[in-house]
Write a protein that binds this DNA or RNA. Structure first.
Lengths: 215, 215, 215, 215
DNA sequence: CATGAATGAGCATTCATTCAT
DNA sequence: TATGAATGAATGCTCATTCAT
């Protein structure tokens, strides 16, 4: 099956992104693997990308902007995939479990990205007005949607504030993987998801009714 | 038994910290209320404290060190108070509830401190080898201790990994208060603690067995 | 044979050094005439050169580096010329005399350079691993080569350690010109060379065999 | 023979030097063994001496002054001893040989002092008006005196400029020991003196008249 | 005689940024 | 589209120095 030639020059939206731009974004991605963002300078990026410093200005107005551009790409790709992952899953509980698994799995495969998300980006001035934050909100909105639906359908308890539950899910996932991300150990999405769901969904107190025959 | 008078003014070891040192620490605390740490310069601090820039260097070897010194003070004061708060409380569940309440209450009253803890300090190079981190670990150790004890005494389920549960508690608290901290809204420790405990301790799924008569 | 025109403007490898670099090196040379190196600051150099301070850093990684660059230039030019001067001279004695004369003559015409060589550069940390020192060694090697050859050919005494003789030649030249260099008086290469050779080559003790009819 | 008690408090010239002053000078001496003078700061000295920085000001007006004070002590002690060493020695040649030996021997035993003399002190602004330089001149004057006397008495050749010969002696000694001083190797005063005298006093050219059967 | 506290001034260094080509 | 040259502006930091005690 022949490759369609229109790949070369798509008319409207993106007429083949200039090579310099790509090289710059790749350079930042590579550097983020080595050091923290605030320690990365324009000349670092330029040197790594093999382009002139001045060229970065052509494409990105400042370094934050560049970082957000890089993050946006990873983030929206993830959200798109997550949406597809959730297709066909039934019930709030199952959906949340799937979402947790997908998220941890993504953190596991894109560690650099996770680290920046947890440690760097949040304290940028203006982050909460950024495009990146918008996508994060979209993601958080998905969680909230599932919870709301679960409550509406009687699957989840009414006496739990949905937004707080969402925050717990977010915080639980984040802190569940944080040590692994920081000290560079594998994340084990399956087990972590399983245990996380047990804590959040079920009763953690030992009761006769609980099936707690050891782990 | 009368308190010996020499307790008042001990000659040798701790002859009242120099006023400049205090002014500098206070200045940093004040500035942190206005802007993020990385945007605070030596001259900012010196100007706010009303001392010479070089004096900062006399007492603190670099700006990280100064921040850690400030954090350490708040942190250890909190851990001390928390220890006292937990005295006399019986059972893992009650202890954890108390700990959650105390923590959120502290976040509420020391918002600057909370913000730095969540957003700034974690991505300092060398944070994980710092004195500050040591105290954070001590705090995390308290949680783990309660959980372990709960499991041992049969109060908590055996099939939940203690460390993960601790991470969930930490993450849940953090993300429960994060929006309030960032957008400067009151934290409502009572309600938040109540809901958090419900999510973590109880079954969030709607069941006949659950007392879920709406809220 | 006509000189090829492309020699004038070579496209690739050495496309005429940037004007700023030249201005900076000239500025340092000028300043060294006025004050000692350690008293020269970046802003001195920048002001004298008429460029921005940051530009110095672009071309030279630190001030030592800049000085060495300047020295290296003078030094290697001298060593090249010295090599040419010695061409065709026969015999160790004649060669050493020529070398002494050339050296003193160079000291005389490049006094700034001489002063730095005698007074400054030697106590730089890392001088003995520098490029400058390497050229100085090359020069010292030339002296040693002449001496060794002289001994081998029976022209010089066997019972004199060659390296020590070289050191004496170096020290004698240096201290012979030092007062003139420091107090800014002419060096008189001809007479100095003559007297130096008499002291080193001949017997300084008054004997019947010496032709010592007064000076 | 009992120690006379007046050693304790001599009335006029020096009523027991204050302990702080001694500690400071010792501290500088110790530091000079580790690093070069220009890298030594007041606080270095104060810390090493175990005194307050402000105290140094009581005794020395600046760091140069302090260094010169230290040097002066070593230097004048040396000149005094040298004077005694030369007592009873007859003839210019013998006196010069003795002076060379004493000098190299001193360099050998006081290496720190030698290093500073060769590498540091000479390029201090104002060195040539310093007390230290005065003593150096006194020393140089001794050499010149011996030479002049040698010429006057017909022991040395008339056609050699005395001052230049003195410079050669100074330069020869300095460069003879310089490598050893810098790279920290033993100086071997006996052999070095012997060879130095051979080079300076005798004919270095191989002749039938020369006794050059040794190695 | 000795010290702790505090200061003024300056320095090397680095960074983001902007031209002209 | 891409670059080499050059700049303005800070910043952290260090040092010698001076009080009051």
């Amino acid at each position: 099956m022949p490759i369609p030639p229109q790949e070369q020059e798509r008319p409207g939206e993106s007429t083949s992104p200039p090579p310099g731009r790509l090289k710059i974004m790749d350079a930042l991605r590579a550097l983020l693997r080595e050091k923290e963002f605030s320690a990365i300078t324009w000349s670092d990026i330029a040197r790594t990308a093999g382009v002139n410093e001045a060229l970065i200005y052509k494409y990105f107005k400042d370094s934050r902007n560049l970082l957000h551009e890089v993050l946006k790409e990873s983030l929206s790709r993830f959200v798109r995939r997550l949406n597809r992952d959730l297709k066909g899953v039934q019930g709030a509980r199952n959906k949340l479990r799937k979402l947790i698994w997908s998220t941890i799995d993504m953190y596991d495969s894109e560690r650099v990205f996770a680290k920046i998300l947890f440690l760097e980006v949040r304290n940028f001035p203006g982050y909460f007005r950024s495009e990146t934050y918008r996508i994060v909100q979209e993601y958080a909105g998905m969680i909230l949607g599932i919870i709301d639906e679960g409550i509406r359908k009687g699957e989840l308890r009414r006496d739990i504030p949905p937004k707080l539950l969402r925050q717990v899910v977010l915080g639980a996932m984040e802190h569940a993987v944080l040590p692994g991300i920081i000290f560079d150990k594998p994340l084990r999405p399956d087990q972590t998801t399983e245990a996380l769901c047990r804590i959040i969904f079920e009763d953690i107190l030992a009761r006769p009714s609980n099936r707690q025959q050891g782990h």
